[in-house]
Design a protein around this nucleic acid. Structure first.
Lengths: 225, 225, 225, 225
DNA sequence: TATGAATGAGTGTTCATTCAT
DNA sequence: AATGAATGAACACTCATTCAT
C-alpha cells in the first residue's frame, strides 16, 4: 500500500519539477521564447517525458498560470477575516500582493501569462472555463468591491465585475512591462509605486462622493493604521 | 502624363491592400499568429511580392501601427481647439475615439499591437523611439491632463505620464480582449461602455476633491455640453 | 543609314555598361554575392532590361570573363614580336601581366571567375568551348613554352599544355585569394611577389639541366636586361 | 550494457551517413549547389534530423573538411619516420596521397572545399583558425621543405610557406577540376600523372642548382628506391 | 525597347509533437 | 515510465526569371 503512494508522490514531484523549471525559464526569457526543449533540458528530463505529464505545451503553461492564481488566492484568502470591511479586505489584498511580489515570482507569472492563455477576452468576461483558478481569484476581489458598495463606501451604480477586470488588467500590465525588461534592470519598487498610485486612483474613482480620501490610502508594507 | 500617376496609385493601393489584409488577419488571429505567408495568401499575392512593398515583417507591422496611430492622432488633433479646457479636450478625445472606433479597425490595431512593438515596457516608459507616431499620441493626452491640473480640475500631485500610461493600458486591454473574441461575438457597444466607465472612473480618481462629478461625465456620441 | 548604326552603337554601349557595372560589383563583393538586381541598380536599368542583352546571369558572367581574357590576350599579343625567343615572350607575358594588373581590374576578373564559369575541368582540358577567348590565351602561352623547348631552353619531355594549366591555375589562385580580402586590405605587391616567385620556380623546374638560372629571372616592371 | 554502445554506434553511423551523403553531393554538384534539403533527401532523413547531428550547414561542411584533413594528416604522419630526410618525407607524402586518392573521396573533399572554408585568402595565409586540421597538414609539408633546405637539397632563399601554398593550390585545382567533371568521365590516372609532373617540376624548381634531378623523381605507387 | 511588378521555388533553421524502444 | 531520435510543417526571407504594359 505504500508503493502506490510513493509512485503517486513521485509523479507529483516530477510534475512540479517540470512546472517550476518552466516558470524559471519564462521569467528569465519571456513566455514566447521558451520551448519544450528548453524546459526538458532544464528539468533534466527528455522532451517525451514532458508529454507524459502534460498533454501539450498550452496545457503546461495554463497549469502554471492556474497554480500561480490559486497560490495567490489562497494567500489572500488566508489573511482575510470575516469581520473585515470591504475596504479592509482590499487593503489586505494589496498587502498580500506586496508580500508575494517580494517573496515569489508566481505573481509575475500569474499576470504575465494572461495573454498567452486567455485568448478569449478576459476583459469582457473573465467568467470562463479556461481561467479556472483565476476564476476564484476574480470573484474574491469582486466580492470585496460588492461589500464596499453595500457598506456605502463605493458608488451603488458601479459594475463590480468591470472594476475587477480593470484592476486585474492594470496589474497585468505592470508585470508584463516589468517582465519585458532584462531581469537585472527591473525596478520592482517603481512598479509597485506606480501600481499603488493607479490602484488608489481607481478606488477614489469608484468611491461615493464625499468619502474621505485619506481612508482609501493603501499601506506600504504593513497596515499602519 | 497620367500613366505615372496611375502606377503610383496602383502601387499605393497594393501597399494598402497588403496592410489591410495584414490588419484583418491580426484582428482575427492576433499579432503573433500571423505569418507573411498568411498575409500573402489573403492578399492573393506571392510571398515575394510582399517584400516588394515592405522590407521585412517587422517593418510591415510597424507601419500598420504607425499608420493607425497617426490617423488617430490627426483625427483628434484636428478636432481640438486652442480655446478648449483640458477637460473639454479629454472629452473630445473620447468622442474621436468613439467615432473612429465605429468607422475603422485601426483603433483596434493601434492598441492591440502595442505588445508587438513596445518590447521595453511601455507602462514604465512609453517615451521610446519605436512608438514614433504613438509618441505624439501619448503626449497629446498627457498635455490634456496637465492642462487639467493647471486649471485646478485634477489633483496637483498626480503624475500625468503615469495616468496616461494607465489609460492607454486600459484601452489596449479592452481592444485586445475584444480582438481575441471570434469576430462575430464581439459586442462593440459593450466594449465602449466598459471603456467609458473605466475612463470616467480614472477621471474621477484624479479629480480634485470636491469637484462636481457630473462635470466629468463623458458624452455618448455627440457632446451634449 | 545612320539610324541603324546609332542604334547598334547604343545597344553595344548598354551591353558594355551592364558588363562594367557587373564587373565593379564582382570585384567589390565577390562573384557569389552579386545578384541581377544589384547589377540592374548599379547600371540604373531595370532587371528586365538586363535580359534583353544577356539571356541569363550565367551568360552575362561568362561574357565578362571572355572579354577580360580577350583583352589580356590582345595586350600580350600586341607586344610580342616575331623575333622574340620563347623566353623573351614569356618575360613579355609577365610584364604585360604586371602592367595590366596595375592598370585595370580585368585581370582580376579573368582568373577570379574561372570557377564560376568553367565547370568542366580546365586543369584537365582547357581546350573546350566555354573558354572561347581564354582558349586563345591558353594557346599563346603554350606556344611560348613550345618555342622554349625547341630552342633548347626547356626539357624536351615536358607537356606544354600541362605546364600552362598549372601556371594559369597558380595565377588564378593568387587572384582569387586576393579577391577574397576586403578591397582595402589587398596587398597587390605581395601577390605579385608571390606570383613571380612561383612563376620562376616553374620555369626553373622545366628548364633543361645546366641552364643558367639567372636567365630565367623575371623582370620587375620593365625588362632591364 | 550493450544497449548504450549500440545507441552510440547508431548515432555515429547516422552522423557518418549524413556526412557521406553530403560528401557525395558535394562531389557530384559542387559545394555551392548543395542544400540541406538535398542532403536530407539523399540521406532519406528529414531536414530537421540533420540539425540533430549538426548545428548548422556551415558546421556540417566544416566537419567534413576537418575530417578529411585529419584523416589525410594521420595517414601521412603514421608513415613518416624520424630518420627520414626531407625529400624522403615528401616522397612519402606523395605516396600517401596516391594511396588515399585511390581509396577514398576524402582527398577530393579536402581540397575541393577549400574555397568554402577559407574565405580569407589561404594562398596569402593558410595560417588561419578555420583550417584547424588543415593547419597541421600545412605545417607538415612546410617542415618537410624546411628540412630539405637544411639538408642542402633546396635553395636557401626560398620561402617554404609560399611553396607549400603553391603545392596545396595545385593539388586543390587538380581535385576541383576533376570534381567538376561528371563522375563517369573522371580519369583519375590522368589527374595523378599531371599532378605528379607538376609536383616534380616544383621540386626541381626549388632544388639547389646542380642537384641531380633523378633524385627528385616521385615514385609511382611504392617507393622503389 | 524598356520597364519593374510579380512570381514561386528556394534558402537555412526551429520546434511541438510522436513513437519505437 | 521514460527516452530521445525523428518528423514535417512552419518560419522569414531571397532572387533569377517572366511578362503585361
Amino acid at each position: 500500500m505504500g508503493i502506490f503512494e510513493r509512485k503517486e508522490r513521485e509523479k507529483a514531484e516530477r510534475r512540479s519539477l517540470i512546472m517550476s523549471c518552466a516558470k524559471a525559464l519564462i521569467l528569465e526569457y519571456g513566455v514566447e521564447k521558451v520551448s519544450m526543449g528548453d524546459i526538458a533540458k532544464k528539468a533534466e528530463l527528455s522532451k517525451g517525458t514532458l508529454y507524459l505529464y502534460f498533454p501539450s505545451k498550452d496545457v503546461l503553461f495554463k497549469d502554471i498560470c492556474d497554480e500561480a492564481a490559486a497560490k495567490f488566492s489562497e494567500y489572500v484568502e488566508s489573511r482575510l477575516k470575516e469581520s473585515m470591511s470591504g475596504l479592509e479586505a482590499l487593503k489586505q489584498y494589496w498587502i498580500s500582493y506586496l508580500e508575494l511580489y517580494g517573496e515569489s515570482d508566481d505573481i509575475f507569472l500569474l499576470f504575465n501569462m494572461r495573454h498567452f492563455l486567455a485568448p478569449d477576452g478576459s476583459f469582457i468576461s473573465v467568467e470562463d472555463t479556461t481561467w479556472s483558478a483565476s476564476y476564484v481569484f476574480y470573484y474574491l476581489i469582486k466580492k470585496m468591491i460588492e461589500q464596499g458598495v453595500d457598506e456605502g463606501l463605493f458608488e451603488k451604480d458601479i459594475e463590480p465585475g468591470l472594476i475587477v477586470r480593470a484592476i486585474i488588467g492594470l496589474f497585468s500590465q505592470a508585470v508584463e512591462n516589468a517582465a519585458k525588461l532584462p531581469r537585472t534592470e527591473r525596478k520592482p519598487d517603481l512598479v509597485i509605486d506606480e501600481l499603488k498610485t493607479v490602484f488608489q486612483i481607481m478606488l477614489r474613482g469608484i468611491a461615493r462622493e464625499g468619502i474621505d480620501r485619506s481612508l482609501l490610502v493603501l499601506p506600504n508594507k504593513k497596515t499602519d493604521e
